[in-house]
């Protein structure tokens, strides 16, 4: 085995491990931020400042009994959380999170900080996002419970509706970036306008960024669009009947999807690992800061905004967001043709 291959395998395992970790960190951050927004303390007993709370949660979940409804379709009931979790992990494989590096001269040639450099990366993310609907839909159907079924149906309707705006917002960035590869798009955002404003696509695509963010929240089923699991109406939606580790897998998938959506937004709109002050080789620090800021925004929004009504969600998605996204795409294409950005 060449050192390069070992480095690549190591990188893959590292990404996998860090994604698992990020879910644990996000659980802690979510609980802490929620507590502060509601003037509580949040978890503080397990470990210093409650930092070991996610670990305690995991242990608790592992020792819970694995329940299965009698009338459930056992095969699909077991398969659904696996689909959800593996789609969540798979999507991050094509996301670059740093410039090419030799690890301070350890390797003979630089490797990309990315698991797989696919030249249609943006579409791969989109494809995997569209596959992850199945996890939720099948969970809802196979549980054989009316709340689960309603949650599953809602989620498929919601994800199909918002996928269109999501894809159209992505497409307008592709037009500006003139590439389907995430690495190329990030590299197109290096440098500055007038030596001050960074050349991030958010300044060219402010509307596209907002549409992407909104549709991203809907795609990850987070509040204020958390209809598939609306507690007050559907108990817990599609995962009502799940317990123990299969429930944990849905939980994990939700947080990893959040991380992936934020990471993709960082790559597409916020210049990826490009930023002032730090050298290129430490660009991943900028990447982490930007992803962290977006994730905080997600949590902040969840505890600030109440849930919409279901018909409001559909009206907003089809009658406001999608036309806006289409107009944005047309305007972008016209602008690129006219000015030749």
């Amino acid at each position: 085995m060449t050192p390069l291959l070992i480095a690549q395998i190591g990188l893959t395992l590292f990404v996998f491990f860090m994604l698992l970790n990020s879910a644990a960190i996000m659980v802690y951050v979510e609980r802490k931020v929620a507590a502060f927004l509601q003037q509580r303390l949040g978890p503080y007993l397990v470990g210093p400042k409650g930092l070991l709370q996610p670990l305690a949660d995991v242990i608790k979940l592992m020792f819970k009994e694995e329940l299965r409804p009698k009338a459930a379709d056992w095969f699909l009931f077991a398969l659904a959380p696996i689909i959800s979790a593996s789609c969540a992990f798979a999507a991050f494989a094509v996301v670059p999170f740093g410039a090419e590096t030799t690890f301070f001269g350890l390797l003979s040639e630089p490797i990309k900080l990315q698991v797989a450099d696919v030249n249609v990366a943006v579409l791969v993310i989109f494809a995997i996002a569209s596959m992850s609907v199945y996890g939720i839909v099948l969970a809802g159907w196979s549980s054989n419970s009316k709340y689960s079924l309603l949650g599953g149906l809602r989620s498929s309707a919601q994800m199909i509706s918002y996928e269109l705006s999501y894809g159209t917002a992505l497409a307008s960035v592709l037009v500006v970036g003139n590439s389907l590869s995430l690495t190329d798009i990030v590299n197109g955002q290096s440098g500055y306008w007038f030596h001050v404003i960074p050349r991030w696509f958010i300044f060219l695509q402010p509307l596209g960024f907002l549409i992407y963010l909104t549709a991203g929240v809907a795609e990850t089923n987070r509040a204020p669009f958390d209809f598939p699991e609306a507690e007050q109406e559907l108990v817990a939606g599609y995962h009502t009947e799940y317990s123990s580790m299969s429930f944990a897998m849905f939980f994990l998938a939700e947080y990893i999807n959040m991380v992936t959506v934020s990471a993709v937004a960082t790559d597409l709109f916020l210049g990826g690992w490009h930023g002032p002050l730090l050298p290129e080789s430490l660009g991943w620090i900028w990447f982490l800061i930007k992803v962290g800021a977006l994730l905080f925004f997600y949590v902040w929004m969840r505890w600030t905004l109440p849930r919409y009504r279901y018909d409001q969600l559909m009206t907003f998605g089809w009658k406001i967001l999608l036309p806006l996204a289409v107009v944005n795409l047309l305007a972008t294409a016209a602008g690129v043709l006219y000015f030749g950005v």
């Binding site: 494809a127 569209s130 596959m131 609907v133 199945y134 839909v137 159907w141 149906l153 498929s156 309707a157 994800m159 199909i160 996928e163």
Partner: peptide, 11 residues
């Protein structure tokens, strides 16, 4: 096919 159309079928 696998994403959009089959979701509608499943639906």
């Amino acid at each position: 096919y696998a994403g959009a159309i089959m979701v509608l079928f499943l639906f």
